[in-house]
Design a protein around this nucleic acid. Sequence first.
DNA 1: CAGTGGTCTAGACCACGAA
DNA 2: TCGTGGTCTAGACCACTGA
Lengths: 240, 240
Amino acid sequence: MADLVYQRVIKALQNQIDAGKFSDLKLPNERILAEEFQVSRSSIKKALNSLIQRGVVFQKQGAGTFINPLYLKNRPMFDIAGDNVGVTDTFQRNGKRPDIKVIDFNVVPASPEVQESLFLEPGEFVYEIQRLRSFDDQPFMIEDGFVPIKLVPDLTKKNIAGSLYKYLHESRNIAVTRSFLTISADVSTANDQKLLNLKPVEPVGVMEGIFFMDRGTPIEFSHMRLHYKFMRYNTFTLLN
Amino acid sequence: MADLVYQRVIKALQNQIDAGKFSDLKLPNERILAEEFQVSRSSIKKALNSLIQRGVVFQKQGAGTFINPLYLKNRPMFDIAGDNVGVTDTFQRNGKRPDIKVIDFNVVPASPEVQESLFLEPGEFVYEIQRLRSFDDQPFMIEDGFVPIKLVPDLTKKNIAGSLYKYLHESRNIAVTRSFLTISADVSTANDQKLLNLKPVEPVGVMEGIFFMDRGTPIEFSHMRLHYKFMRYNTFTLLN
DNA sequence: CAGTGGTCTAGACCACGAA
DNA sequence: TCGTGGTCTAGACCACTGA
């Protein structure tokens, strides 16, 4: 992990920035950095790109590489960037007591949609996991998740009563590190209204996503319908 | 702009994907693509990285490059881009025409919320820009934007009838490169229903965000209410 | 074992910004 | 004009996947 050249550079630069080494907010130019770290300029660029993505620095052609003043001034805001796997973590705040109720747990053949989303062969089986999540006694999310059985052959109802990803990580050494999410809104159905305690006029937020393991293997396809007051997705984006 | 190698590759691949060329959801490997486009593998990688960030494809080491099935299923209508909302090529190819109608344009003192979002001092003034965006004659977004007057002292109603960010870029050499967005959903108000042509039970998607110039200075605080069928936000997230 | 993405290098030339 | 980041190339070797 830390033996990668660009990872080493990222860490070193991040540490130097946090330690206030660049008091004028300007980093040495890329060629100098390459010299200092004894690596190629490409590796420096890759490392700097990562810091740019995180909002730590920005670059201006012809001028140089600078620390984002907002990063120093308002760091907590930047820590939000990249949230959202382990839906629990995202919503776990304020000392509220999270609760997960398993509505349904079955092994079913993958539907065409699920099959395509998880890149399965026809006829492969998946767990279907329907859960209702609450904070204190306020339900806020209906979750319908699909996980290939071949990736986690021994899943039980007990495992999924808590955090699925925590179980995968701790018991199976599977780390979920990437996700594709689509976020939209929809009119609430009768079922939504019943489970989430919504009035007919109140909508749901919809989040649909594919979650990936380290090496890019899809591990879960998930469809989530949220009480509209509880869907709040924050994202920090680099444009273009 | 379009004369850049990797930009050309991005566009070509995006077009091919949208046209359904890769029916098995698998792209040729990077070396083949480099050969086909007569460019280096590095340029292919740079182009693919962009598509990955947009949630169009994902890669799996040792296996290949694959189209994100969610992208095909939930193709976004627009991108959050230079002009906080940019119509995708996909949409434009359908012959739809984007339109912007200016509802209101004023200079007002910054409210506490706006002041905090744009890092202004008490008493500073901002433009308030209310616009309604449509495709063909279907309005899809009510936009309420705030821009500090000190950053763009000469803004006129004419400038904002088109792309504000295009104007900033071309006339003021201000590039908007980052955004911090919060996405949620809400019950539609009477005003929403009137402007967006919604039934009372139909909701709006809400996107609220701060847009930054490349030096990290906030240039716009924007509150957007979207027809729920047109809000479709795709993200790719890397954790850690 | 062959295929494919990941990392890394060394160097060339271009485009922009500031003095 | 000169310093700086941006783009691009050609090629080497590593690490993982899947048959």
